[in-house]
Amino acid sequence: MAAGGAGRWFLLPGLAFLFTIDLIPLVYSAWVSFYNWWLIRPRDVRFVGLDNYVRLGVDPEFNRAVVVTTLFTAGAVALEFLAGLGLALLFAQPFRFLRPIRVLLLLPLFVVPVVGATMWRVIFHPEVGVLNHYLTTFGLGHPPWLSDPTWALVSITLVDAWRTIPFMFLVIYAGLEVLPAELFEAAAVDGASAWQSFRHITVPLLTYIMLLAVLIRGMDAFREFDIIFVLTGGGPGTATQTIQILNYRAFGLGHMGQANAIGIVTLVLVAVMCFVLMRAILRPRGAAQA
């Protein structure tokens, strides 16, 4: 009992740290979101209650940004998850040069997002870009990567995938490496196929790890800014205008109330997304155990 009491005290530094860096800014941000505060008019700061939230609710541009953000997040995370899982399964098999190739695969993780996006902007460039040069050489046409609304959404998804597939790979691969080999050996003795081993041993044992990877990437993708800002700036039109692009614009023009309202809505949407994802993935497992 005494040890438990003392143990709780050890939580204090962590809680104090969390309170300082998380809770105070969050509460302040929520508080600011109830004000009409435009930086160019410092003497005209007014409490407006929920006005900033109501305006977001009826703003077609914001609603479209929510749809674009959701599409981008779903597309990017699905692509990254499937590619990451595939690569992890591939690299779980021993083959020559495994280690150097594994290191090479991780390289995009170390590239600063803005630098990577700038590099891709040059690669996608319609006239001087290397991608269209080779596609044209092989008779595959020259897609308007950044100038067509659909292609622009595909392009930012591909660049996000390029940057973060290594993360998915790394997390799932680490999970695969610690799975007990005996289970697979026993399944092999019982005549299980590779697919059956994967479906009935690998997937259940890796569920939590995969969920973690998808959640982290989902939260990141929902808040993605750098790549989209550099590649398309939200265009063409509003084709790639995500919530974060709108938030950046509101902050940039000095609308602190509106910008903080967008930030709080983003937080709520990310929390809902995580909750739904966890319920969807974990419920059948819990129900089965019950």
Partner: peptide, 22 residues
């Protein structure tokens, strides 16, 4: 105008929608 930065930003976004065919 004091509000010009916002007005120009509104012009930018909407001109982009026009040229994108929205």
């Amino acid at each position: 105008l004091r509000e010009y930065a916002d007005i120009q930003e509104n012009l930018r976004v909407t001109a982009g929608k026009l040229t994108a065919g929205e």
